[in-house]
């Protein structure tokens, strides 16, 4: 490989379902130790983009490279945390078993889980502060706890790139902060991409931000730009955040007084 392995690089990527592109012409570059937040309205193609990066759907146009190769070949180096709502709540399975699943890709066909796998499983459960729950059935956990388990499952295979789809949907604010500070720590060892429609929580943790609404509007700065958001949401946007503060504060510049730009 001539060029260094970039975790994610897409060039002119269009993808979608049944011949209709949901995202088009997306250029995205994620480098080692990036913490990228991709925000956008519902239906903007956030999950579609993740699926293209994972190689679950083929690009209609353009290219996706993960660590310099096609996603199918490098998928094992990606940790993926899907939206938890897609899981079967009633499945008879314990926390430990779910996390251990993450070790499967390291194993050969007839190779059983080893003591090493169990040790690693315990380590990541401790990292996400869920060790006390390891023998609980997954159905007994709260939304935030489930989310931690699915993050642990992605981490147990020591991924070099972590993709998270709406990691804090259906999680309360306090838990949400806990999850993001965990991600911040993990970011020292791996690139992280978070997609969410919840703009408020992202700004204090990310190194790069992009808006996805069919097309990608990106910025290399860890702050949201008003134009970007307005392009993505197709309406004037004013951004106020409550994250970690008692008083709402702005992350964008003030609107010009008197609406002179209208």
């Amino acid at each position: 490989m001539t060029e260094p392995e970039i975790p994610i690089k897409t060039v002119g990527l269009s993808a979608g379902y049944k011949g209709n592109p949901v995202i088009s012409n997306v250029d995205l570059k994620v480098e080692r130790n990036d913490f990228v937040g991709i925000i956008g309205p519902n239906g903007g193609g956030k999950t579609t983009l993740l699926k293209a990066i994972l190689g679950f759907i083929q690009p209609m146009e353009g290219k996706v490279k993960v660590f310099g190769r096609s996603p199918e070949k490098t998928r094992s180096r990606i940790g993926y945390v899907p939206q938890y709502a897609t899981f079967d709540e009633d499945y008879p399975i314990t926390v430990k078993e779910v996390v251990q699943m993450g070790r499967r890709k390291e194993k050969k066909f007839f190779e059983r889980y080893s003591r090493q796998d169990l040790k690693k499983t315990k380590e990541v459960l401790a990292d996400v502060e869920m060790n006390d729950y390891k023998d609980e059935p997954i159905s007994e956990l709260s939304g935030g706890q489930k989310q931690r388990i699915f993050i642990a499952r992605a981490l147990v295979s020591s991924p070099e790139l972590l993709l998270l789809d709406e990691p804090t949907a259906s999680v309360d604010r306090r838990m949400e902060k806990g999850i993001y500070s965990l991600l911040k720590e993990l970011n020292e060892d791996m690139a992280i991409v978070v997609v969410t429609h919840d703009i408020g929580v992202l700004s204090s943790y990310i190194t790069k931000v992009a808006c996805l609404s069919g097309e990608l509007y990106s910025s290399d700065e860890p702050c949201l730009e008003k134009d970007m958001l307005e392009d993505a949401y197709q309406c004037p946007v004013e951004l106020i955040t409550h994250a970690g503060e008692e008083i709402p504060h702005r992350v964008l510049g003030e609107h010009p007084e008197g609406g002179s730009d209208k």
């Binding site: 094992s76 899907p82 499945y91 399975i93 699943m101 499967r104």
Partner: peptide, 10 residues
Amino acid sequence: FDEEFAKISG
């Protein structure tokens, strides 16, 4: 339990 995850696991 999770077909999508099965795919990621190869």
